[in-house]
Amino acid sequence: MCGRFSLTASPEEVQEFFGLDEIEDFPPRYNIAPTQPILIVAGDVARAPGDNRAARRAVLVRWGLLPSWVKDPREFPLLINARSETAAGKNSFRAAMRHHRVLVAASGFYEWRRGAKGSKEKSTPFWIRPRHGGVVAFAGLMETYLPPDGSEIDTGAILTVAANQTLAPIHDRMPVVIEPQDFARWLDCKTQEPRDVADLLTPAADDFFEAVRVSDAVNKVANTGAELQSPVAEPTAAKTVSTRSTPAAAPTADQLKLL
């Protein structure tokens, strides 16, 4: 699954990567958590007749999808991820898979390697990033929830798939990555049904990501600084070099808001 991720690229980098006409300014975010706003790219912008350019817009949504039919969000589970293998047939995701496929802008994500069953070993966090850097697009779903008070809440979830060989030793799931050449097809919910884009829901190539062992400071949502992505030694190695270690930098200011 994907329970934390990061977007540290500049607005200009995100705009160019997704082919957006415009984008609002936003700060780097190093520890994005469920229920916080996430930046997604949707493909339903109306253009002038005869303008055949890619129609895309950047939108902020709450991370945690709420289907339109939910009566009381307080009694509904927080859907931050959707299994790509079954999403098209699940009541919670069926409409979004057909009508509201989106791209989630990210610089990478965090995952935890659990200790052996029965052991007292703590889960080990890893920062998982594209091996060559840059922005990455996760396959996502979006729903607009209409509360009884008449307001609107845009919500979203990230699609996951079985982990590739690089990440399998850490966790058995990973976000689905959509390559730039496939953006248009994934976002086209008018002519491309879920079965038409099912071939895109596969693990990223084994050499696409690299995993960096990081401090367990990332476990706390309140920690939002760049030091969260600094490499640290594996626990066994750390014992031999503990006298050389340096304390982590103090957390930066709250970054729950993009704008």
Results as ranks from 00 to 15, higher is better:
residue 73 P to N: 11
residue 74 R to C: 12
residue 74 R to M: 14
residue 74 R to I: 10
residue 74 R to T: 14
residue 74 R to H: 13
residue 75 E to H: 14
residue 76 F to H: 12
residue 76 F to M: 11
residue 77 P to V: 06
residue 78 L to A: 11
residue 81 N to V: 04
residue 81 N to F: 03
residue 81 N to H: 10
residue 82 A to W: 07
residue 82 A to R: 07
residue 83 R to L: 07
residue 84 S to N: 11
residue 84 S to E: 09
residue 84 S to K: 09
residue 85 E to K: 07
residue 87 A to M: 05
residue 88 A to G: 12
residue 91 N to C: 12
residue 92 S to R: 09
residue 92 S to Q: 12
residue 94 R to K: 14
residue 96 A to C: 07
residue 96 A to P: 02
residue 96 A to R: 01
residue 98 R to E: 13
residue 99 H to D: 15
residue 99 H to N: 15
residue 99 H to G: 12
residue 100 H to E: 13
residue 101 R to E: 02
residue 103 L to M: 06
residue 103 L to T: 05
residue 104 V to C: 03
residue 104 V to L: 00
residue 104 V to N: 04
residue 105 A to G: 03
residue 105 A to L: 02
residue 106 A to F: 04
residue 106 A to P: 00
residue 107 S to H: 01
residue 107 S to D: 08
residue 108 G to L: 00
residue 109 F to N: 05
residue 109 F to Q: 11
residue 110 Y to F: 09
residue 110 Y to C: 05
residue 110 Y to P: 05
residue 113 R to S: 03
residue 114 R to F: 12
residue 114 R to K: 15
residue 114 R to C: 11
residue 115 G to W: 03
residue 116 A to R: 14
residue 116 A to Q: 14
residue 118 G to Q: 02
residue 118 G to D: 02
residue 119 S to R: 10
residue 119 S to Q: 08
residue 119 S to N: 07
residue 120 K to A: 09
residue 121 E to N: 13
residue 121 E to Y: 11
residue 122 K to S: 13
residue 123 S to A: 15
residue 123 S to V: 12
residue 124 T to Q: 15
residue 124 T to L: 15
residue 125 P to H: 05
residue 126 F to I: 10
residue 127 W to L: 05
residue 127 W to F: 10
residue 128 I to P: 08
residue 129 R to K: 15
residue 129 R to S: 14
residue 130 P to F: 01
residue 131 R to P: 12
residue 132 H to Y: 13
residue 133 G to V: 01
residue 133 G to Q: 06
residue 133 G to H: 04
residue 133 G to Y: 02
residue 134 G to L: 06
residue 134 G to F: 01
residue 134 G to H: 08
residue 135 V to M: 06
residue 137 A to Q: 11
residue 138 F to R: 09
residue 138 F to K: 07
residue 138 F to E: 04
residue 139 A to K: 06
residue 140 G to C: 00
residue 140 G to P: 01
residue 142 M to C: 11
residue 142 M to I: 09
residue 142 M to Y: 09
residue 143 E to I: 07
residue 143 E to F: 00
residue 144 T to A: 07
residue 146 L to Q: 14
residue 147 P to F: 05
residue 147 P to Y: 01
residue 148 P to M: 13
residue 148 P to I: 12
residue 149 D to P: 01
residue 149 D to M: 04
residue 150 G to V: 10
residue 151 S to T: 15
residue 152 E to D: 11
residue 152 E to W: 07
residue 153 I to L: 15
residue 154 D to H: 13
residue 155 T to I: 03
residue 155 T to W: 00
residue 155 T to A: 03
residue 155 T to V: 09
residue 156 G to A: 10
residue 157 A to H: 04
residue 158 I to C: 02
residue 159 L to W: 06
residue 159 L to M: 08
residue 159 L to G: 04
residue 159 L to R: 08
residue 160 T to V: 11
residue 160 T to F: 05
residue 162 A to P: 15
residue 164 N to L: 06
residue 164 N to H: 04
residue 164 N to Q: 08
residue 166 T to N: 09
residue 166 T to D: 02
residue 166 T to C: 09
residue 166 T to H: 08
residue 167 L to Y: 00
residue 167 L to M: 06
residue 167 L to Q: 04
residue 167 L to W: 05
residue 167 L to P: 04
residue 168 A to S: 14
residue 169 P to V: 04
residue 169 P to S: 01
residue 169 P to E: 03
residue 169 P to Y: 03
residue 170 I to D: 07
residue 171 H to I: 00
residue 171 H to R: 09
residue 171 H to S: 03
